[in-house]
Amino acid sequence: MTTPNIEKTLNPNELLLFKDLVSPHFNPNWHFHPELQISFIVKGKGTRFVGDHVETFEEEDLVLTGPNVPHLWRSDEAYFDADSNLSTKGLVIYFNQELLHEGLMKKNEFYHINKLIKNSARGVEFYGETKRTIKPLLLRMGNIKGFQRIILLMEIVNVLANSNQFKLLSSPAYTNVLKGDDTKKMSLVYAYVMSNFKNKIALKEVSDMLNMNTTSFCKYFKPRANKTFTRFVNEIRIGHARKLLLEDNLNISEIGYECGFSTLSNFNKQFKSIANMPPHEYRRLFLKIKTPLS
């Protein structure tokens, strides 16, 4: 029997691990682990996967993920080019849930922290002033050791627990059903889609990668991603389209074709289905925010 492909983070004698990660690109493997994780992106761009949630990320992305929540910060394809001079940097804290014992969570003083830990099962993204408050605290983590790190972690957790500047990522119905070599298979699929979403993706090619027929692959993929493969591909494409719309260099039709849609009508339809507004409205709202009032 194969064992779950779980990433090893803490050893049995640790409660907390801090990493200042600098590399050409972020870990490209879809994975999970029993520890909670706080991730802050200092440098780098790409697509973030948390449970069944897919969204682009950029610098100063701040996310909390709970125990055994599958996740992946996939760098843009440019970071994987052999001649690329791009690099990434992330500040990450892994901590054991034993630090926030169930008995403590029942006390009044831990009400907000208990709510935060429950929300972490879906992944939590923080924004606004919360990010600006957390960043210097994470930077301090690299300069201290031992119990001082535990104290600083509690300060960080307290800020997150009392913030109202957050959004939950995975859907309420999402549960991690990955087992055996699922994470390896899903990583193959994710990597293939990220490399090929601008072109037509043949379901048979993806199925063949996992030695499945197309029917078996569709049945395999949906409960693990909590969505159909077609929906997954469209979410990747729309995520890229959002970035292109904000850059304001291409017209909407050009963006649709650049993201793998063969017709403008289908691009508009899928964009509205995923972003809850048509692409021209998305661009208009962003430009309104971007342009200061005179």
Rank of each mutant, 00 (worst) to 15 (best):
I255Q: 05
A225S: 12
G44Y: 10
L210W: 09
T263S: 03
T2N: 13
L152D: 05
N143F: 10
H53L: 05
T2G: 09
T88N: 03
G123E: 05
F267A: 02
N226Y: 11
K8G: 08
S39M: 12
G66P: 00
V50A: 07
M194S: 15
I38T: 01
K269G: 00
Q148S: 09
K118C: 07
T215C: 12
L17Q: 10
A225K: 11
D81L: 13
K43W: 03
Q37L: 07
L250D: 10
A173K: 08
F232L: 05
F147E: 12
L245K: 02
I93N: 03
S195N: 11
V69K: 09
A202D: 15
N234R: 08
F147Q: 11
V189N: 01
T175E: 15
G46Y: 02
C218T: 15
V50S: 07
G180T: 14
Y282R: 02
K198F: 11
D52W: 08
L72P: 00
G44M: 11
L203K: 13
N199D: 14
F217I: 07
Y190R: 15
P24N: 08
N234Q: 12
I38A: 00
D61F: 09
S294Y: 15
V54W: 02
P4V: 10
L203P: 03
A202T: 14
L17V: 05
L15V: 13
K204P: 03
I117Q: 14
Y282F: 07
M1L: 14
A173M: 06
K19M: 14
D83Q: 15
K269S: 04
A191L: 13
V50Q: 06
G46S: 00
Y220S: 00
D182F: 07
L293R: 15
M1Y: 14
K8R: 10
I151W: 11
I144K: 03
T3N: 08
N5Y: 15
I150D: 10
Y192Q: 03
N176S: 04
R48D: 08
R149H: 06
M186G: 01
N27D: 13
N68Q: 07
M1W: 12
V92P: 03
L138P: 00
T130E: 04
I93K: 01
G256N: 01
F217M: 13
I238H: 02
N119P: 00
T65V: 15
T291E: 14
T2I: 15
P34N: 04
I201H: 01
I274S: 00
L17M: 11
K204G: 06
S163Y: 04
H112W: 12
I151N: 15
M105G: 03
T56V: 13
E254D: 11
S253F: 11
V157C: 08
V92G: 02
R132P: 11
N29V: 14
Y174C: 03
L17C: 06
V189Q: 01
T47M: 14
M194R: 14
S207H: 03
V177P: 06
S87E: 11
F147I: 12
Q148K: 12
K8E: 14
P70D: 12
K131I: 13
L137M: 11
D181C: 10
L168K: 01
R48L: 12
L139Q: 12
G180P: 09
L285V: 06
N162I: 06
